[in-house]
Design a protein around this nucleic acid. Structure first.
Lengths: 358, 358
DNA sequence: TTGTACGCGTTATCAC
DNA sequence: GTGATAACGCGTACAA
């Protein structure tokens, strides 16, 4: 055998052509199969490929095709996100599945520092990807600038206020919050508080808005407890502070399950029972809701579905079929940005009961 | 102004050269700055760049350099990993930071199906990355084959039995488990059970081994409760089954904090108190340990440090300095694979107490 | 059906 | 210091 066991250098299409006794063009055609190639040279090529161990060089192919079959999945604050936000995992999985189906490679880029931001900018501009999916972008995000400037097809999850015409996938946080608040009202609660997390994001603002709408004249601004992030610990601290200040609340709407779980533990540590003394509802339908004791009534949010939709939306833009894709969906507009809204629903569990008679 | 507001096509180095009145070579030198370039043409180039809005095309650069400054971070089973395994997040962040520091871009590839496996194979072979970090690889993993065949520098987190000479980063699960078990023995426990998760992985096997070693003659095989995964729910179910079968256990070693948290909730639901009736210890020192009530005594595992080490190890291989890098570290060998062991330690919290006198 | 030649955007090696 | 020019590995009109 003349083939060394450990080929030092990777084989090129040239090697295959020489080995098979055909031209480079034929080998290329064999791979991209647009044109016909005779069965004789076909088998010769196949043997040659096996013999020299050829694998197409994607970098070279990308260069000439101006196409990478790759979509970036950009996520900020990986530390908190991956450990505290259960949605991100679902979105990632959904997007990955959908892209995989359409033969795109998802590459997940994490941004954790200014240095990262800069490198990711380069990466995006450098022609490494055909499109991007951006989660948890914030106001004035540099990534947004890069994306608009370099005109790369992109989709946002959620909608920061300044997405310059970039499509986004979201849920109707207002309607969802209204319906979970209604759940509390329906069983007779009136002193309902909200642990309002993430008020620096659209989601946080909208959830508070939905709550306010549902409460109507019952709304007591003193029972709005802002908390920093959607995290367990902030929920814990927030609930402690709230109940200290307003011990007469009979129900709490926490704007994420993690916050709700933290609140639930705080409530229990104060010697109160759930739901007999205080009802608690969350938002997300994440593992936080089912691992709590009791399990939490919450809003189901289709994280995987959002990932799927974001992937489809990005690919549609890449392939120039965005309008057809968006047509049959629930489309809204925020400024110049089109958005697709996905449906949510209440998941009743065991953390809600009527208030005790005073 | 002759520059259109929306340039249709991206500028190339050629455009810059023409605009600046120099040659492509000079512009290239300007960017890669090895050789000198006169201040006059330097400023001319800078102006030209700004004018035409030039950004280097990384794909072309990679093609000629045969270098991408990119390292893949490959993860399987994203669904369970990202939501249930808190380590992965830390490892990812650690690796990302370290790579960022050394000017490598980390791209995270998730494998969630056979289709994914194949595409990632192509991606790896296609010259998209200079190296790889692989987490949670299993026995007979196709990725392992690809990596060895295409000889791309790689590092594993943990050590599947069949890593063909590929370096890995790990912790000494045996020693760690021995020391946390000892914690239980020291306060007088004898009927100690183990919820042994992940016995299909090296980590699971080693943790059970450490437990067995520490127990010595006290080991009661009936108190070894195997559970499928390192998850909360498996811990819950496992503890229920265990305590049903063996109500006289006074302490439980759960081989992950998530398992421990699940076990803790099961124990409480049975009306038992922690630690008065049953002591519980975990493994990982993740958020699961601190969010439990009471907070769990556990083993601290340096997830970020593992990510950092894996990144360094991969880069060292890429740059051919592996030996120097490994020299001052705690190096072991598994077959032909060199491994670096990172230190762990016990974190005492509130979930351990002496057994009640019978 | 197959081979040829050119181009993709950079870097690198030369002379100048 | 700087400017041509040959790679890098592949796709693809165009010609044969």
């Amino acid at each position: 055998m003349s083939t060394p066991a450990h080929p030092k250098k990777r084989a090129t299409i040239h090697d295959v052509a020489r080995e098979a006794g055909v031209s480079r063009g034929t080998v290329s055609r064999y791979f991209n199969g647009d044109s016909y190639v005779s069965t004789s040279s076909r088998s010769a090529i196949e043997q040659a490929i096996a013999k020299v161990g050829y694998v197409p060089n994607t970098a070279a192919r990308n260069l000439v095709r101006q196409r990478t079959q790759t979509v970036a999945f950009i996520v900020h604050e990986p530390a908190s996100l991956f450990t505290e936000d259960p949605n991100i995992g679902g979105i990632l999985v959904g997007a990955n599945n959908e892209l995989s189906e359409r033969d795109y490679q998802l590459v997940c880029l994490v941004i954790d520092s200014a240095r990262d931001t800069h490198r990711v900018e380069q990466y995006l501009r450098g022609g490494f990807v055909d499109g991007a999916i951006v989660v948890s972008a914030r106001m004035g995000d540099p990534v947004t600038r890069v994306i608009t400037e370099s005109r790369i097809p992109a989709t946002y999850i959620g909608h920061p206020p300044d997405l310059a015409g970039i499509p986004f996938i979201g849920i109707d946080n207002i309607t969802a919050s209204r319906s979970i608040t209604q759940e509390l009202l329906d069983v007779g609660h009136e002193n309902i508080a909200i642990l309002a997390a993430g008020l620096d994001r659209d989601s946080g603002v909208d959830r508070l808005e939905g709550f306010s709408q549902a409460m109507g004249p019952l709304l007591n601004r003193g029972l709005i407890q802002p908390v920093e992030t959607y995290s367990y610990s902030d929920g814990y601290d927030g609930a402690l502070e709230l109940l200290h200040r307003a011990p007469d609340v009979t129900a709490i709407f926490a704007t994420s399950d993690a916050v709700a779980a933290g609140a639930a533990n705080a409530i229990k540590r104060l010697g109160l029972r759930i739901p007999q003394d205080v009802s608690v509802v969350g938002f997300d339908d994440s593992v936080w809701a089912t691992r709590s004791d009791p399990e939490l009534t919450t809003i189901h949010q289709p994280s995987r579905g959002m990932g799927t939709a974001a992937a489809q939306c990005t690919v549609a833009q890449i392939e120039g079929t965005f309008d057809e894709w968006a047509a049959p969906r629930r489309l809204i507009h925020l400024g110049s940005a089109p958005g697709i809204m996905l449906d949510t629903y209440v998941v009743p569990r065991n953390s809600v009961a009527p208030p005790r008679p005073q």
